[in-house]
Amino acid sequence: MNHDYAVDVEDLTKRFGRFTAVDHIDFSVRRGEIFGFLGANGAGKTTTIRMLCGILLPSDGKGSVAGYSIMTQSERIKQVIGYMSQRFSLYSDLTVRENMEFFGGTYGLKNQKLKNRIERVTDLYGIGDFLDQLTGDIPLGWKQRVGLASATLHDPQILFLDEPTSGVDPSARRQFWQTIYQLARGSGTTIFVTTHYLEEAEYCDRAAIMHKGTILDLDTPASLKSRYSKSNMEDVFVHVIREHEGELTV
């Protein structure tokens, strides 16, 4: 395993009974990179993320996250990653501050250190107005930022974002991506993001196109576009999928 990589997987496979959700995929993510996973719902994106985060055991293959094996060192991995999902997963009956205190606490942050970290992310994401409101009562776009704040409290090396902008309006999405950008460029956090908004691939350093459990192509958005001579990622995506399905039917 190469330790320069934040994520490095080989032949990663997950079968649920007779259904293969992730089918022998290989890829690596450099430290500090924004890495996108593009694909329709059911392509295997979330299953891959779950295996990388150590809450789902792979059926086959191997992989490392932050240098730790996803098969045997999931407890170490959990310490150094952050995760935010499409399903908003903070406690809606707790205030924003209480949520952050709780999740910070699970990472062993406490007292002054916890306070400082909360202050820092509050400033960074501009969520000061919502700190003492119940999380269930704040607008969705802001919830997303609060989720991000909570997921980065413990300064994770790698941040996994599973469809983070799902259901958020375009302007809030743009803002969200600017924040992600700052995070990656500013503090060197590796970002691993899945999305089905294909135009968001433009924000990624590299993007993988996932389809039915396999990775069909993986490159920078610029070279993907030039290789398939398309003007945007959406056309690239459609072309790649069509080509693949064509190969299968011919």
């Binding site: 150590g54 809450i55 407890e75 959990k78 999902s85 903070l90 406690y91 999740f103």
Partner: peptide, 14 residues
């Protein structure tokens, strides 16, 4: 039901 179990499982809490 609310999905927070996933978030909990992803935290280092065993």
């Amino acid at each position: 039901e609310t999905g927070t179990m996933t978030q909990l499982r992803l935290s280092p809490a065993g």
